[in-house]
Write a protein that binds this DNA or RNA. Structure first.
Lengths: 194, 194
DNA sequence: TTTATTTTGTACCAATTAGTAAAGTATTAT
DNA sequence: ATAATACTTTACTAATTGGTACAAAATAAA
């Protein structure tokens, strides 16, 4: 294992790239933007990410999954009331302290920002949104198993419902600054969880 | 009113621009893409649209409103059953014959694709989404007036609900190819219209 | 210390970008 | 006809794009 050591931390610069992509969008983020934020030179960058911007984005998506989805899934599978957790989660999206701010969903954004000839990236983004859907479905199923839900709707249909709500809110947030309206919107949607 | 006449039809080339923006997204649509599709030279383009790509997009949004929203609003204010119209409208989004295909909502896309320093465009896109919300609200109010709806939810809250459903579906469609799941999703959401 | 290996910095490049300049063309009004 | 106006064509530019080439540097193993 010889050779010159890296002078940067892989995950640290990935996190910086995530920030840039999330803030500016995939198409608008230039290589310069990314390199500046990451604080590494072109040589290092193209050495570490031979696939350039596309590979960087792919890895940044993995990072976002690892950083966000894993924690949510763990919380949902261990907490006492997964249904209330979901309610709180969606209500938190309507406030200033929203975990994603006004930047929307990393993967929903990708689906809409990535050009058609980068079909690979779109597929990956879709796959991760399906993972989120699955997480919701599991939580709902657990809620049913715990006797917290009486609804006759199947868990997976509710998972689809919730991921669609997630997708909607992340767009609607950008057109609707009135947080009370957003909260009311979420409350109305959460009536499916009975 | 002297001067050389235009060799093209203003609205015809706007329609072409709409096609390109819708297909490729605002950020990915280059001036060349647009000029080729519109079939005019750079000179003509920058003469007709002094503001360049940004002005073109602004006018293309107006065109989309005129071409789509006006018709929907008219239909909704004159048809016998506006509630059923809305149901059919949303269900139509889940099929192959969807009016927007997989290209999503022109304005929702804009909110996510336009870079932060084009704040003006984002505001306009948001404004038009609010117009759509208003159209839904009016339809719901009319449904109530006609005795077609018994729900206690206020019309404007339902308008917000429907525009959020619209926003969600247009993202979810891109991650979910299964049209039955989409249709089931819409059906579940339309239960608010009782 | 030498050598092999891995990483970095710098300089460069070809292509593409949005946009401009200006000369020329087609029309209407006088 | 001629002048004024409105539009088009072409050629150009300056900046930025993503990406490459390669020599230099930093380390581990021999």
């Amino acid at each position: 294992m010889a050779g010159r050591p890296k002078i940067y931390d892989e995950t640290a610069i990935l996190d910086k790239a995530v920030e840039v992509f999330w803030e500016k969008g995939y198409a608008n983020a230039t290589a310069d933007d990314l390199l500046n934020a990451m604080g590494i030179g072109k040589g290092s960058f193209y050495f570490a990410f031979k696939g350039g911007k596309e590979e960087l984005f792919r890895k940044s998506m993995e990072r976002v999954v690892e950083l966000n989805f894993k924690a949510i899934r763990d919380a949902l599978t261990t907490c006492a009331d997964p249904v209330q957790f979901i309610r709180d989660f969606f209500l938190s999206l309507t406030g200033n302290e929203s975990p994603v701010g006004n930047k929307g969903c990393y993967f929903g954004n990708a689906l809409i920002q990535v050009s058609a000839d980068d079909a690979g990236l779109k597929m990956i983004a879709a796959k991760y949104l399906h993972l989120l859907e699955e997480i919701f479905t599991e939580a709902v199923q657990r809620g049913k198993d715990l006797g917290l839900l009486q609804t006759q709707e199947p868990a997976d249909a509710l998972g689809t419902y919730l991921v669609n709500l997630w997708n909607g809110i992340n767009v609607t947030r950008r057109m609707e600054p009135d947080q009370r309206k957003l909260a009311e919107l979420v409350r109305m949607n959460l009536k499916v969880l009975i």
